[in-house]
């Protein structure tokens, strides 16, 4: 009997963790420095709606101390949403996302689905509207782009994940398709690995070639920054596999690295020698991405596929709500986290 595609996307632990969560969006003002400029987030009302027990990760400022005193337990005050939130998911469906053992949770594509499904579930539960667009195999799947609050949005989303990621994702066309549909203030969540959004030819020439050509990356970020400046909240969820962070092929064995998107030439050579410099260059790229996002006011959350999806989603929710946390930083690439703090100072 086939598993319900929704069930498959959201594991039981995540479902339980999402039970009483809500999707709050607070505009991050200056990167991760929290709490200084607390924005008025439209769509989340000020009117009291209900209490609920405190769960770790809730903003302590929302504790209702008087109610807590009455009931002898920590309660959080929930307020009525004043305005509906448009959640727009922009998904990278290129073959680059088809990495990891298929069907396992460490698969980049399925992890992206998990994150997307979790956000959609939360949004729909609180009555927000959800739309999404996928760039896959050189095509755009924009049938569900128009935000709607219907329950079938989740099912439509699950349908997207029944077919594997393939081909290339045309970012420019994708953003061009998404931008006009955003009528009011929306939360745009972009799911991708942001490793190689475009560009052809060898990424690095053998010798003496200029450093990484970042034109495609910059163009993507520029598009997203434009959305941001259009008044939308933009969150970049970077889905990475542990292999991409650590490059585990460190033997003399000859390996052949093939670009899944088919844009880059195949590289062949002993693993150990190919690994040389890779980590540094990757690290530099991730740092550049982080700085660019900070500069553009974009939220960047990193999701490594071998970690607990529940913690990652909760962390993402916190980040969206403006909470400062490092939980999403990759543990394997410790330097990323450290760099983050270092940049802040």
């Amino acid at each position: 009997m086939a598993v319900d595609p929704i069930e498959r996307l959201i594991p039981a632990s995540l479902r339980a963790a999402l039970a009483r969560r809500e999707l709050l969006v607070r505009r991050p003002v200056a990167g991760v420095r929290h709490g200084v400029h607390r924005s008025l987030r439209p769509g989340i009302g000020r009117d009291f709606r209900d209490y609920r027990p405190y769960a770790p990760g809730d903003d302590p400022r929302r504790l209702d101390w008087r109610a807590a005193a009455r009931s002898q337990r920590l309660v959080v005050r929930q307020t009525e949403s004043e305005e509906e939130l448009d959640l727009v998911l922009v998904v990278d469906g290129s073959a680059a996302m088809d990495y990891g053992e298929r069907g396992s949770s460490a698969h980049k594509w399925s992890r992206a689905g998990t994150v997307a499904a979790a956000l959609t579930t939360l949004a729909l539960r609180q009555g927000d509207r959800v739309g999404f667009a996928v760039g896959r195999a050189g095509e755009l799947q924009t049938a569900a782009l128009e935000p709607a609050a219907r329950r079938d949005r989740l099912r439509a989303l699950a349908e997207i994940w029944t077919t594997p990621a393939a081909g290339d994702c045309e970012w420019e066309a994708l953003l061009d398709a998404v931008a006009p549909r955003l009528r009011r203030r929306a939360l745009v969540v972009v799911l991708s690995d942001f490793l190689d959004p475009g560009g052809r030819g060898p990424g690095l020439a053998e010798d003496g070639a200029p450093e990484l050509d970042r034109s495609a990356d910059e163009s993507l970020l520029r598009g997203l920054t434009l959305l941001r400046s259009g008044g939308h909240d933009v969150a970049l969820v970077q889905i990475l596999h542990r292999d991409e962070l650590e490059f585990p092929w460190d033997q003399q064995r000859v390996i052949e690295l093939e670009d899944p998107r088919g844009r880059r030439p195949t590289i062949e050579g002993p693993g150990a020698s190919l690994r040389e410099g890779y980590l540094d260059r990757l690290d530099a790229h991730l740092n550049w991405l982080k700085r660019s996002c900070e500069r553009g006011g974009l939220l960047l959350a990193q999701v490594v596929t071998d970690e607990d999806p529940a913690a990652q989603v909760l962390d993402l929710l916190g980040r969206l709500a403006g909470a400062p946390t490092d939980a999403s930083m990759p543990t394997g690439a410790g330097r990323g986290g450290a760099g983050h703090e270092g940049d802040a100072r």
């Binding site: 990424g203 062949e268 190919l274 260059r281």
Partner: peptide
């Protein structure tokens, strides 16, 4: 020839080929 392990690797642009570029 030694059959290399074939990996579809998303971050291939960060890998610098060592030998003269082995073409396909």
């Amino acid at each position: 020839r030694e059959r290399p392990q074939k990996i579809r690797f998303a971050a291939v642009r960060f890998v610098r080929p060592r030998e003269p570029v082995v073409t396909q």
